[in-house]
């Protein structure tokens, strides 16, 4: 067991309103194999029950525990403490979003961007009755790297363009749009293109690549955005 100091951002709207929050230090022993979520759970269950954060599956599929750890966005449940390489670990809420309490942020604006791009399959032609639509393995492969998103918010929260322009759809919503754009079954390009071919859409991205670095699922939203641009230009020609 190794000693670590966790410097955790705290904000209680009922006490700290009007302030910029505070930092609370917890000195705890960390066992081998612990993730940052394990450490937060230890703090909540054994040191300070008032610490608030979101968590659910604890193995990287639900996307609840996105936060900023030592300055880098990731999901806490997948971040091994030992891999951080520091004995002092700072844990902060995802930036770019309003803090509700401690490490919990308001994700509504993030979801709203998704709703804006119509995040569902649009198909006008009727599917075959009592059969699946066919899709070749090659066409299916185009979805790889786009459909695995867990909506943790790490990408959009790391995006300087989003910090400056809160209307920007952000890497997450644009990747979702790309996921449908390349799906051989989808016919919704016309419906979707207006939302993304916008000054707050694909053209706003400055290819800073923060989102790629932040994604815990190693997805490449910047590449997806570039693919969308290419599709759009093709459509204009």
């Amino acid at each position: 067991m190794a000693e670590y100091i966790f410097r955790v951002f705290r904000y209680d709207p009922e006490k700290d309103e009007g302030t910029r929050g505070r930092v609370q230090e917890y000195k705890i022993g960390v066992e081998r194999g612990w993730t940052v979520l394990d450490a937060l759970n230890y703090i909540k269950w054994h040191v300070d029950g008032s610490l608030a954060y979101r968590r659910a599956c604890r193995h990287g599929i639900c996307g609840s525990c996105g936060m900023t750890i030592n300055g880098k966005n990731t999901i806490a449940c997948e971040q091994q403490v030992a891999d951080l390489g520091t004995q002092v670990v700072t844990v902060e809420p995802l930036r770019g979003f309003r803090v509700i309490k401690d490490l919990i942020v308001d994700m509504e604006p993030f979801y709203d961007k998704l709703y804006a791009i119509k995040p569902y399959l649009i198909a006008y032609s009727d599917p075959p009755t009592d059969k699946e639509r066919l899709q070749s393995p090659e066409d299916r492969k185009l979805l790889d790297g786009k459909y695995e998103c867990i909506l943790c918010g790490c990408c959009t929260s790391s995006c300087p363009t989003y910090w400056a322009d809160k209307e920007f759809l952000g890497p997450n919503a644009l990747m979702k749009a790309a996921r449908f754009a390349v799906d051989s079954r989808d016919e919704g390009w016309e419906e979707r293109v207006n939302a993304i071919d916008d000054k707050h859409g694909v053209w706003r991205c400055h290819t800073i690549f923060n989102c790629v670095e932040a994604c815990p699922k190693e997805l490449n939203a910047t590449r997806a955005i570039v693919e969308l641009r290419r599709l759009m230009l093709k459509g204009r020609l």
Binding site: Y120, L121, A123, P127, E132, R133, L134, Q135, S136, P137, D139, R140, L143, Y147, F180, D183, R185, D186
Partner: peptide, 14 residues
């Protein structure tokens, strides 16, 4: 499938 689930596919596309 009709809703859009990205199932893995057989060589025939099923």
């Amino acid at each position: 499938e009709h809703m859009g689930v990205p199932f893995s596919r057989t060589p025939e596309g099923k």
